[in-house]
Nucleic acid binder design. Structure first.
Length: 575
DNA sequence: CTTCCCAGCGCG
DNA sequence: AAAGCGCGCTGGGAAG
């Protein structure tokens, strides 16, 4: 059962439609529901397991969650539309071609970004405020129904202009899987924001006090930073030095014979001047204070929860981004503040060495698959081609995925290519595609953006100098597409992992067997909080989901995607 | 004064 | 040890 949910002047409008996106013949009439009644109505319909189809999950689901309504599945027209508009699998369809035309028109007709009106403020207060009339063009029931129908038609044609019939079916199925996983991801993001990461403010404050000293008055440096500043001023003979200013710092270092080109940590470490150690300490602590200190705590943690917004589809590769509080960059220093509720445990699971394993599967490199049989892929590769030197093997493989050209990593490439011609050939091909301005595509069908304006312009180079520049721009795009196929396919895998895990956790919750809740997700890592007695069930769900994700992406292939699991009270004990 | 960009560093 | 991908956030500093 497919149910459209659209904004309406009197609240919301609902309409049952078919899988193809036409009004359900047996029940074609839309139904208008007032904003106040919506949560109750939705709850009632949910028992029939519909797929909710809406413009954006973020428009509806957060308020439903606040009203205590959790849903099983949805179809996010905005996220799915973005995938279909750019996927190589659907590039030949009318949907993608119309989208491309729209983009071009946009670029021609839109005022510069700075002149565009700011986005509306986030919704506050009442549940389901009726949107102002005319404010959201193209979001009527009819417009959304047409959009859904167009997307389904495009999806149905995925791959039909290429290759063997068998391959076509697979492409369509993969894309369909991606759309389902992306929509599930949007629900998970809203649910995790609603739930929040369990965060104990008093533990965080304890960490800050230990590292920085007592909480300073607003605008003041903490005691520890104050004393380090005094020490640096003395050691660098610069009585007014502000160590937070890279320019001042650079001048002070040069005056003292420390000839660095930047003030980055790794470059500073080259010098043995007595000021370097306190300077690095200062930088470390200053970062903690500025990014995750008392101000951060006041701003982002309340009632024992850190509730960031996750931005599904926020990264071109399919990874999530986040807004507010730097949710995807919680430094190790403060992870001790992430602490399970009484009687509960945190299960922190990460897909070990995910990207290299994804590369093995993508390239179907059987030699590398042997190395990937064991828990430690790098050790396996080291044994096969690097005389047992694990560090070397790791640097070489990561270099292949990122496109390293110089340094140790670049030097090891030929050696890696000899041992694994298929795996290296796969990323090399992606790099050449990117350099030539072609798009590349993840396993499930998410495609890289077209070449930038800069790349296009650089193609018309005439002088030798311009040509050198053009080559550099092309190589940069090559590194991007090289990484895209791996990072994007890893994101495909992670999205399926997450969706499968959500399904299992929901099933266990409704059966009353286990009460695990997803509370955090970070590219290749999930955190589930559950009662102590439910840990074993939840771990099994995490592992089964990982196995299911592998099979969904690649079928039955002899490559393992092991998950490393830690059961902890506090996040800092996870690694 | 505000706005924007950069350097630097956190995470994967 | 270090330089190659993807992000968000902060403070400094220049530009308007």
């Amino acid at each position: 059962m497919y149910l459209l949910l659209a904004a309406h002047a009197d609240g919301a409008a609902l309409q049952e439609i078919t899988a193809e996106g036409v009004p359900e013949p047996s029940n074609p009439e839309p139904r208008v529901v007032s904003a106040g009644d919506l949560a109750g109505v939705v709850r009632g319909i949910e028992g029939r397991h519909p797929r909710w189809i809406w413009h954006r999950t973020q428009d509806w689901y957060p308020a439903l969650l606040r009203a205590g309504v959790e849903l099983e599945r949805c179809y996010d027209l905005t996220l799915c539309g973005a995938i279909l508009a750019h996927s190589e699998f659907t590039a030949h369809t009318g949907y993608a071609q119309a989208a491309e035309k729209l983009t071009q028109d946009d670029e021609l007709n839109q005022p510069p970004r700075a002149l565009q009106p700011p986005p509306p403020p986030p919704e506050q207060g009442a549940l389901f405020d009726a949107p102002a009339p005319g404010r959201r063009p193209g979001q009527s029931l009819e417009a959304l129904r047409a959009e859904y129908a167009a997307q389904q038609e495009s999806l149905g044609q995925a791959g039909t202009d290429s290759g063997a019939a068998g391959a076509d079916a697979t492409r369509r199925q993969r894309l369909q899987l991606l759309l389902a996983a992306e929509s599930a991801g949007a629900m998970i993001a809203a649910e995790m924001q609603h739930t929040g990461v369990p965060w104990r403010a008093e533990l965080h404050e304890q960490i800050l006090a230990e590292q920085l000293g007592p909480r300073p008055a607003p605008g003041q440096r903490p005691a520890k930073l104050e004393s380090l500043t005094a020490e640096l001023r003395r050691l660098l003979q610069s009585p007014a030095l502000n160590p937070d200013s890279p320019q001042e710092l650079m001048r002070a270092l040069h005056r003292n014979g420390i000839e660095v080109k930047t003030t980055r940590q790794w470059e500073l470490k080259e010098s043995s001047h007595p000021a370097i150690v306190p300077l690095l300490t200062y930088k470390k602590l200053s970062r903690l204070h500025a990014a995750n200190g008392w101000t951060w705590l006041d701003t982002w943690v309340s009632n024992g929860r850190f509730q960031p917004e996750y931005v599904v589809g926020g990264v071109v590769s399919g990874r999530w981004a986040s807004r507010g509080g730097g949710a995807l960059q919680i430094p190790r220093q403060v992870r001790g503040a992430v602490h399970a509720d009484p009687g509960h445990k945190l299960i922190v699971a990460d897909a070990s060495q995910l990207e290299p394993r994804v590369l093995v599967a993508l390239a179907q490199d059987s030699k590398m698959a042997e190395a990937a049989r064991d828990k430690d892929l790098y050790a396996g590769i080291a044994a096969q081609g690097f005389g047992g030197d694990r560090a070397k093997a790791k640097v070489a493989l990561l270099g292949a995925i990122y496109g390293a050209t110089t340094g140790e990593s670049g030097r090891l490439m030929p050696q890696l290519a000899r041992t694994y011609p298929r795996a290296v050939g796969f990323v090399e091909q992606a790099a050449r595609d990117g350099e030539a301005g072609r798009t590349v595509t993840s396993r499930l069908g998410r495609s890289s953006p077209p070449p930038s304006e800069r790349w296009l312009q650089s193609q018309q180079s005439s002088t030798a100098e311009e040509q050198r520049r053009a080559d550099s721009i092309a190589r940069s795009r090559g590194r991007f597409t090289r990484n895209f196929v791996v990072q994007g396919s890893a994101a495909d895998w992670a999205a399926c992992w997450l969706a499968e895990l959500r399904r299992r956790l929901r099933a266990m919750r409704s059966a009353g067997t286990a009460a695990g809740q997803l509370v955090f997700f970070l590219h290749d890592e999930v955190m589930v909080q559950c009662p102590e007695d439910d840990v074993a069930d939840c771990i099994r769900a995490i592992e089964d989901s990982a196995a299911a994700a592998k099979e969904l992406l690649f079928g039955r292939i002899p490559v393992e995607f092991p998950v490393s699991v830690a059961v902890v009270d506090s996040y800092d004990n996870a690694k």
